[in-house]
Design a protein around this nucleic acid. Structure first.
Lengths: 203, 203, 203, 203
DNA sequence: AATGAATGAGCCTTCATTCAT
DNA sequence: GATGAATGAAGGCTCATTCAT
């Protein structure tokens, strides 16, 4: 898993970390190449431009996040599904091991590039539609617009802890809402969401 | 109020717009000065550095956002308070008129600068504590940690629609969650939050 | 004449020499700035780009060549006019003192840039029309097309010694057709041209 | 002759076109190889360096131009010889079919490379000496230096229409002195040259 | 109080060339 | 006989900042 992979793969990995840490503009091709142990010209050789490398990196991040923490929507039990989805989301955005992926996405949202369109269609829309279908199963009475508000209510709460992390760290210290809190956060979000839907009072 | 103000004030206004649109790194001192109708050296003359101008701009943005949409927590009725808070938040982050302020904050969260510490303490902590106190009044039984999860549940949902705007625009069109949806969003968020708290079923 | 002129003027002079010696692509902004004793960023500051500097340099070269060796077409005597024109042309293209101007033009002809259009209209067309008018005075019987062939016959011979210089130097040594030959070349070109026109047999 | 030749031959052909169009510096090894349908490393493999390829290309261009439009100096009649030489020169430099060869030479003259020495000796000197001999046959009275001025008067006029083409195109449109004008240009140049020599008044 | 000229550091990109296969 | 991957050098340009006026 950590053997010397090809230059291209190493660049992709290094780019993810640097882009996440410094942003597209802040990241320098130099630093990416150095971190990847590659020549300065390697980015242009393998990807054509910094921009194109970024695009590829974003795709790669979503792809590998999905592989790592897949969100399945095919179970029977809605409450269980909700819990599973919430945990999967939190881990995806939050988990320390690949935490740069979460930061990368956060940056892309704050400062969308042309790459966002594709990523939104390919990776985010299915997620939204998955939750939407879940809500529909729990509350077939809601019209699509109302349903969607519930959907975003759920997703919004998950995303918040990634999004607001910089502030939370500064106000409450980095431990207060760290990775080890994921189970607690997940339980709270899931159960309050279910309550909102009128599905259950206590897990 | 709209007479030809001093160079300093014009710079602050121009910087807000440019920083919001392009980010700290993307914004150039040149473009800010041009927009402000000031000399290229004016930024360094009045603020010392681009960094310092940014800090000042961020403060300025929060200050004027608070003046414009103050969040009051001194009313009697908790449900009414929650509704008022949610609307105030959404307008603050969302309203088109000064929408660059929302973008500016979004950027700062995605890419925190040293200025965030101060802003978090001065402007965000009071907000969190206000909501926290509100939750305490509604549910004195909760311990502080649990209370905070509710607090963030509320804030998270408000912030989401600003945060995810780029994706929502791309997936559902810019109208779907535009400014005119604020009342509807606010009502949903507030009422589902109250339900979560066990406070009411119907406003 | 050699006091420390402004940076802009020094850049223009240095650029002329370097562009003439190395061509547009071969010339580096670095070397131009060094030769001008200016900072590396000076070119972009004063001219906006290497391209724009080149354009300005070309204009400057023609302008100062014209100032230095003006071609007057207002005399009475056609043969004298022809001689005067030929010498002025040869000196303009050939004279060692500012010889880089000749090289610069030669390069521009071999590899025209967008700047050529303007230079052709502003500086070359008047020259052609001047000679054309001269020919017309000598031979009113010719139709415009035929007249023009004579015009180009004259100009072509002048230009040749600049154009072919690299070959002539290599085949016959740099002295054979050097600057000190200008009077002899001029006399030959002028008198054979006049003979062609049927104007005189011997000056 | 048009079957899929070897890589080397294809490179030579492609290089001619690209060097003519873009100049030595402007041409990239990449574009040459692409046009030749060869690998990026093919140039270095077959020729050792871009420089060496250029040298070879220049030789090739002169060789094939000479093969295509040979200049013969062995006829009896001087006027006829002059006419034939002029037309051959004009076609060589001018003809659209292989027009890149003319451009290539023009560039080499404006920006001589080390390859010019050899080309000048091998291909240009014989030309000059041929015309020189022609002039000598017509005017045995002239001393060598004077003779040479006539020689260059002739060659200069031929070369001019290639050399000044960019300006002529811009000032009079691309049709005014296009390929179809070669006979007219040739006749004018030849007959006025003969007149200069005192040989004839009317062909 | 304000500015025009100038600067130094750094960035992305291009390109000819090399080398193992 | 030929190639795909990789590299080192260099180039044009941008930008925040400085400084004399």
């Amino acid at each position: 898993m950590d053997e010397p992979r090809g230059t291209r793969a190493r660049l992709l990995e290094a780019a993810g970390e640097v882009f996440a840490a410094e942003g597209f503009r802040g990241a320098t091709v130099r630093s990416i190449c150095e971190r990847a142990g590659a020549n300065l010209a390697a980015v242009n050789y393998h990807f054509g431009s910094k921009q194109a490398l970024y695009r590829e990196t974003l795709r790669h991040a979503f792809e590998s996040a999905r592989r790592r923490h897949p969100a399945r929507f095919d179970g029977e039990d809605v409450p269980e599904q909700v819990r599973s989805f919430v945990l999967s989301m939190l881990r995806r955005l939050y988990s320390v091991g690949r935490s740069w992926q979460g930061r990368l996405v956060a940056r892309e949202l704050a400062d969308p590039s042309e790459a966002l369109q594709e990523v939104a269609e390919t990776h985010i829309r299915p997620l939204i539609e998955g939750v939407d279908a879940l809500v529909e199963r729990a509350r077939p009475d809601l019209d699509p617009d109302a349903r969607r508000l519930y959907t975003f209510g759920l997703i919004g709460q998950c995303v918040f802890f990634r999004h607001a992390r910089p502030v939370l760290d500064r106000l409450f210290g980095p431990e207060a809402f760290g990775e080890e809190q994921i189970p607690a956060l997940g339980e709270h979000i899931a159960s309050s969401f279910l309550k909102t839907l009128g599905l259950e009072v206590r897990a």
